[in-house]
Amino acid sequence: MKIPFPSLSDIQAAHERIQPFIHRTPIMTSSAISEIAGCEIFFKCENFQKVGAFKARGASNAVVKLAEFQKSKGVATHSSGNHAAALARAATVAGIPSYIVMPSNAPEIKKKAVKGYGGIIIECEPTLEARETALEETVKKTGATFIPPYDNMDVIEGQATCALELIEDQEDLDVVLAPVGGGGLLGGTSLAAHYLNPNIEVIGTEPQGADDAFQSFHANKLIPQTAPNTIADGLRTSLGAWNFKLIQAYVSDILLASDSQIIDAMHLIYERMKIVVEPSCAVPLAALLADQDRFRGKKVGIILSGGNVDLGKLPF
């Protein structure tokens, strides 16, 4: 079954559609960080987005696009992270229920966020099998529509609006760096850049302890994530199949960063930019600083993906 990827007009329509649900986030610079990096960096601050992450875009787009009969039954997903909160909020704004399957070991801060946004939490054992079973039972019982966190065209279309804004607001970029977990953000970013300015090089960045996208990219086949071990909790998930196709088509490389490099980059952002970012969000800067010669003298856009960090567990 061939599903065509969203067109530029699809992405632009999604951007219009989700206006009531999102902020147009600012682009920030830090002369100190640019000097350290040896290139000019433009940070697209999705840590200031609604629900504190870019996930608000894809979840909102998927909810708004539902047919009326689907809306009446609500939406469901399984997620321990930002997608859970983003979907709960988008559903509440749209006036429909949301059922969120969360593993029992999900961070308390994330559970609190989902409840705060009006989501109904169904707890399960912390295994993928338990999550999928609980989701299946929930969908059967409620008739809710499953909205996956990343491997879904409406979600990818929504995530692509982030790069759409970045490239509209900062036209002369040479490179855009984004983190990659499930790949919705990187897939959407690569698609938007391909349409708006195919000369922009799009590069994915990933933790060394969860490098399935890196492995898949170099093997030219999808290799699932096994036993990820990284501080970047938002990037521990397996790369989605649709997103892998987009990455194969439009992403030029995937770079890795170690946990200590991620922590150093996170520290640098806190110290120099005075803004809160979560570990996953610092991965692009960490990867850039680990490979500085490659970016020397260039204009680099970095998507700061989110700022939902448990302040009691900061790694510094």
Rank of each mutant, 00 (worst) to 15 (best):
A59Y: 08
L268N: 09
S252M: 00
L8I: 12
V64P: 05
T237M: 02
T230K: 08
I156R: 04
I223E: 08
C39A: 12
N308R: 04
Q12W: 10
Y270K: 06
L288N: 07
E171M: 15
K65W: 06
I269V: 15
A88S: 07
F5W: 14
T77R: 07
H83D: 10
Q12A: 11
S252H: 11
A144R: 04
A67P: 14
A90H: 01
A282M: 08
A37N: 02
V64S: 09
F217K: 04
S190I: 05
C124A: 11
A37R: 05
C45H: 05
K274Q: 15
K274I: 11
T29C: 14
V300G: 01
A56S: 13
D172C: 11
G143N: 11
V300C: 05
S72G: 05
V64Q: 13
P284G: 00
K50G: 05
K115V: 11
K298L: 06
V93W: 03
G184S: 12
N199W: 11
L185S: 05
R17Y: 07
S260I: 07
A232Y: 08
A192W: 02
A134P: 04
E201G: 01
F48P: 08
E108I: 12
I96T: 03
K65G: 07
S305H: 09
V63I: 11
A76H: 08
